[in-house]
Design a protein around this nucleic acid. Structure first.
Length: 347
DNA sequence: CACACGTGGAG
DNA sequence: TCTCCAAGTGT
């Protein structure tokens, strides 16, 4: 209880004025929590404002097209968040009469909501004492208590959740949860934490044992896969193009792109136009030129995409149905959006 | 249950 | 340039 008191005391003095802190409307809290998953406040802010502005209620979100939702999410990454958000919005609007579930147990049943988000919403909106455990909480607790259990092991996940639950202030769980996360984000930072001015300096195990830089412990490193993308930027003489939707599993599900030929290495123009896939798609006479002189390397968390944009000029085609001017209506990955910025500079 | 899933900022 | 990582979840 002492721990929570100090935490909340710190929080009251260092509280950030964030838009989602001014409401307890579960719909708005939900939006903010989904957007901030694995995402910095600075990056998510504009999206929160855009979503609350365009979709002021869960009904507004529910009746939008998925493509519209993805377009508004464009650039924020982890697009399954947007798809699941939309899916759950429709469920709340249509099956739950627009009423957001009010307990952890019910909230966690929604798609896209896991232990963290259910705990956050239940505590902030409904005063249920369920402890959040996010990256900040792992860091604060592992340091303060000197816990070396890897935070991404199943043992660690259980251990930290249990510990966090014993520390929560049952009288004000929402404040407690936000306090420990803000403390981790602003004070007990990953690099260069502010131990000199830390209210817990006299009892922090990691500080005493000089383990600050070792904690928290995270095991395993991610593997990165190299892929080679050749986008075919079609331009017909009646100024139309082709976009294809990415379906199935993998990256950018539900987003659009130019027709893609993937190769196992970087290829030149001759290799491209003699490839089976190219011939199959473009039997007609075409003019083709490489747009980017230097290969573009787009880095995702698990993939490095070595990318070339090939501008393909052809005659009018029944395949090419999308007007150039309309491309901007489609949700596209940042990689494509960046290309369009350069290829079609804004006036 | 280990792994995939985006993007951008900091050091 | 490179590494880490930021309010995690689904499979």
């Amino acid at each position: 209880m002492k721990f929570s008191n100090s935490l909340i005391y710190w929080y009251l003095q260092n509280d950030r004025d964030l838009p989602w802190r001014r409401t307890k409307n579960p719909y708005f809290i939900w939006l903010s929590e989904i957007m901030l998953q694995q995402t910095r406040v600075a990056q998510g802010m504009a999206y929160y404002l855009k979503f609350t502005d365009n979709f002021p209620t869960v009904f507004d979100l529910a009746k939008a097209d998925e493509s519209t939702v993805l377009k508004m999410w464009q650039g924020l990454g982890y697009y399954s968040r947007a798809r699941n958000l939309h899916y759950s919005a429709k469920q709340i609007a249509n099956e739950l009469n627009g009423e957001f579930p009010t307990t952890y147990k019910e909230i966690i049943k929604l798609k896209g909501i896991g232990d963290y988000t259910a705990s956050a919403i239940a505590s902030i909106c409904f005063n249920e004492p369920t402890a959040v455990v996010d990256g900040n909480v792992y860091r604060v607790l592992s340091r303060y208590f000197g816990i070396k259990t890897p935070i991404n092991s199943s043992a660690g996940i259980k251990e930290f959740k249990t510990l966090a639950q014993t520390l929560i202030d049952e009288a004000q769980p929402g404040n407690h949860n936000q306090a420990i996360m803000d403390f981790g984000a602003l004070h007990c930072k990953p690099q260069n934490p502010l131990c000199d001015t830390c209210p817990f300096a006299d009892s922090c195990v990691a500080l005493e044992k000089k383990l600050i830089k070792e904690l928290p412990v995270k095991e395993k490193k991610i593997k990165v896969r190299n892929r080679y993308f050749n986008f075919l930027v079609i331009k017909t003489d009646d100024n139309k193009t082709i976009l294809t939707e990415r379906t199935g599993k993998g990256i950018w599900q539900g987003l659009y792109q130019f027709p893609l030929i993937e190769s196992h290495k970087s290829i030149n123009k001759n290799e491209l136009i003699t490839s089976e896939e190219f011939i199959k798609t473009f039997p007609k006479e075409t003019t083709i030129s490489l747009f980017n002189k230097k290969e573009i390397v787009h880095k995702l968390s698990h993939q490095h995409l070595y990318t070339q944009f090939w501008v393909v000029e052809t005659k009018k085609s029944s395949e090419a149905k999308i007007e150039w001017i309309d491309i901007k209506k489609y949700p596209v990955p940042v990689l494509i959006a960046n290309f369009l910025e350069e290829y079609q500079p804004k006036k």
